[in-house]
């Protein structure tokens, strides 16, 4: 029974995760090292990775900043009233329930060429949809809950006693945050950052809808994979996908480390 179930679990992992991953890795090397290198020598591939990188950096920075601030507001903002905070708390999860395609559609409906906001930005020379700003917005929408959901429970757990003690001793809010609150939520924030990086790098549906997938302009690494598959150019698709999978594994390792540190922190403080 015991041996059988362990064997079954190994089988599940092999069929569901390891075999597909291995097949893709083999496919990427179909034309050898040279074929792999050729794919990354293409300027459109490099550009796609560049666009993905830019989105990851902007989205992670904004999401971290606003995620931590909103978590502080939701947990500590007693001035808001309990009802309002409960409602806002439920709203935070909305992006989880929204299909990425719909997330992209939302941005098009709000900022597309025929909308009031879209024409407003257009007249000021800013192109939102089928350009970087729209893609960043779509990714921000999709990644929004990740940081809040990591930090808010931690804030709840550590309570307000230490912060109040700091205030009583005359510390300014800013100083209290850095000296008292930040050390307790640090690994939670780092975990949130890694999650955000993973999601913004891997985001596909929302970005595909908003970007229009224009080669050398708005194409990201994931939408490039999609286009190469549609063109039956599997060697290129595999190579790019393998690079993305490699990054995912790195991200996974980062998550493991952050999780362990977070738990150490939790046990040490309790």
């Amino acid at each position: 029974m015991r041996k059988l179930s362990i064997l079954l679990v190994y089988l599940i992992f092999f069929v569901l995760i390891l075999a597909p991953l291995g097949q893709m890795a083999l496919g990427a090397w179909e034309n050898g090292w040279q074929g792999f290198a050729d794919v990354f020598a293409r300027t459109d591939v490099q550009h796609a990775f560049w666009v993905s990188g830019v989105i990851v950096v902007i989205v992670t920075a904004l999401n971290t900043l606003f995620g931590v601030l909103l978590a502080l507001l939701l947990v500590r903002g007693t001035w808001l009233g309990r009802r309002v905070r409960q409602f806002a708390n439920a709203l935070v999860d909305l992006p989880f329930a929204v299909s990425p395609v719909i997330g992209g559609l939302m941005i098009i409906l709000l900022l597309g060429p025929n909308t009031a906001l879209g024409t407003f930005f257009e007249s000021h020379g800013i192109k939102m949809v089928f350009a970087l700003p729209g893609m960043v917005l779509a990714t921000l929408f999709v990644t929004f809950p990740l940081m809040v959901r990591e930090v808010a429970p931690l804030l709840q757990e550590i309570g307000t006693e230490q912060e109040e003690a700091a205030y009583t001793l005359g510390a300014a809010p800013w100083m209290t945050f850095w000296q008292v609150t930040w050390p307790s939520i640090r690994w939670g924030v780092i975990y949130g950052v890694v999650l955000t990086v993973a999601r913004s790098l891997g985001e596909f549906g929302a970005v595909l809808v908003v970007s229009g997938n224009i080669i050398n302009k708005t194409q990201t690494a994931t939408t490039l994979v999609y286009q190469e598959v549609e063109n039956f150019n599997f060697v290129a698709a595999n190579a790019v996908a393998l690079a993305l999978a490699g990054l995912s594994v790195l991200i996974l390792l980062g998550l493991e480390t952050a999780k362990r540190r977070k738990e150490v922190r939790k046990h040490a403080s309790s």
């Binding site: 390891l18 597909p20 995912s248 996974l252």
Partner: peptide
């Protein structure tokens, strides 16, 4: 090892996941 592998579908871009299954 398996325990860390559980999260891979979260970390992997969904398009890459689709491609992997298509290839297999």
């Amino acid at each position: 090892f398996l325990n860390s592998l559980v999260d891979l579908p979260f970390a992997l871009p969904t398009a890459v996941g689709g491609l992997m299954i298509l290839l297999l």
